[in-house]
Write a protein that binds this DNA or RNA. Structure first.
Lengths: 199, 199
DNA sequence: GGAGTAAGTTAGTGAGTACTAACAAACATA
DNA sequence: TATGTTTGTTAGTACTCACTAACTTACTCC
């Protein structure tokens, strides 16, 4: 791992954990096993370290391409796949998302950046629902509303598991909760007893 | 407003916004319109200010008492009322919740404190569902799972609206989203077409 | 009016923090 | 061997921050 990368890796972790002010350049250098001087030789100042770290550790995905060939028009399997993909993306970007929550107003464009995935996902879900409707596989509904609720549900789970420590609220596993959430939406979107009695 | 209260009010707002390190005693004093000296005459140190502020501005509720006489065993109305109450509580405690997310590990017992409401609400929901089942008004289900998903949905909505700034993801109003989320769970929990066709 | 209390003012201390200057050591490459 | 590049070390600067000491001012209650 190059010196740059060592520094950025430690920086993103530490800033996510302690905040921008709380993570000192001395500590970052120490934990990255370089001298503080080296750190400032690689980056002009602390702020630029954060910006470079976000740049390096924010993984961007194009939902459309990501899902294009994976949707099989089976509500349960598709929603499950979407939810799981959502969590994979969010976890990859966990540190940047945490930083956006606590430092968003201090970093130009960070909030916009972090909102891109949810927005894309919302659009994808709406289009997916519309197509499913066309195929007669789900009922008519306010798809934006349903998409948002699906997202909020996933988001709540993600935040709760990632950022709220201490005694947990439930012992249910993440996988079980995701599966459960998908079931809720299946029952909501599926006409009559087609899906009833499964659980 | 007493001097103590002026200080604590500004402190909780500013620490929630800028983090513990980011909010300086000088700024707090300034915004509270007292001298910094006065601030230290009222509180021995900065940490104690935060602790006192949390103490003062964390509103604790007993779910059981809160809901005892309000439940009318109509799934839609009850869930709506529960969701709305949830949001009212969370908003009241918004600052403390934000601080818990970013400073939880630095304040003894804060995470536990903040988790109390969700845990209580989970238990309440489970009991509510069980009673509704007894009355033959909802189907059999994994009620803990359903309760958690209802909570995660509400939590996601709350966090998204409260802490994530920047261009919004949807233009739907909070009320509409809440109503929508309740509909999702009604369709999930209600046997067959009883509730179908409403929306 | 006098005593007690809360607040302001000013000046300062000591510690930490971002960041720099200057020089030396290690290493790779030609 | 010579040279350029990267890193470490040491010492230091300028600044901010939490927190204090000492004195003064304003207000209240008797």
């Amino acid at each position: 791992m190059s010196t740059d990368e060592k520094i950025l890796k430690v920086a993103i972790d530490m800033i996510a954990k302690k905040g921008f002010k709380g993570a000192t350049t001395k500590q970052i250098a120490e934990k990255a096993a370089v001298s503080e001087m080296t750190l400032f030789r690689h980056f002009p100042n602390k702020k630029k370290i954060l910006e470079a770290a976000i740049d390096r550790y924010y993984y961007s995905f194009q939902m459309k391409e990501l899902f294009e060939h994976k949707l099989i028009w089976d509500l349960e399997k598709d929603l499950l796949m979407i939810a799981e993909t959502y969590h994979t993306i969010m976890k990859k970007n966990k540190n940047v998302i945490k930083i956006a929550i606590q430092e968003g107003h201090n970093v130009q464009g960070l909030n916009e950046q972090v909102n891109k995935h949810p927005r894309q996902l919302k659009e994808l879900l709406i289009k997916y629902f519309e197509e499913m409707k066309k195929r007669g596989l789900i009922i008519d509904d306010d798809y934006e509303l349903t998409a948002m609720n699906f997202l909020y549900m996933s988001y709540g789970l993600f935040i709760s598991r990632s950022f709220v420590q201490g005694q947990t609220i439930t012992t249910l596993s993440e996988d079980d909760v995701i599966k459960g959430s998908v079931q809720v939406f299946i029952n909501h979107l599926t006409p009559n007893e087609v899906s009833r009695g499964i659980h």
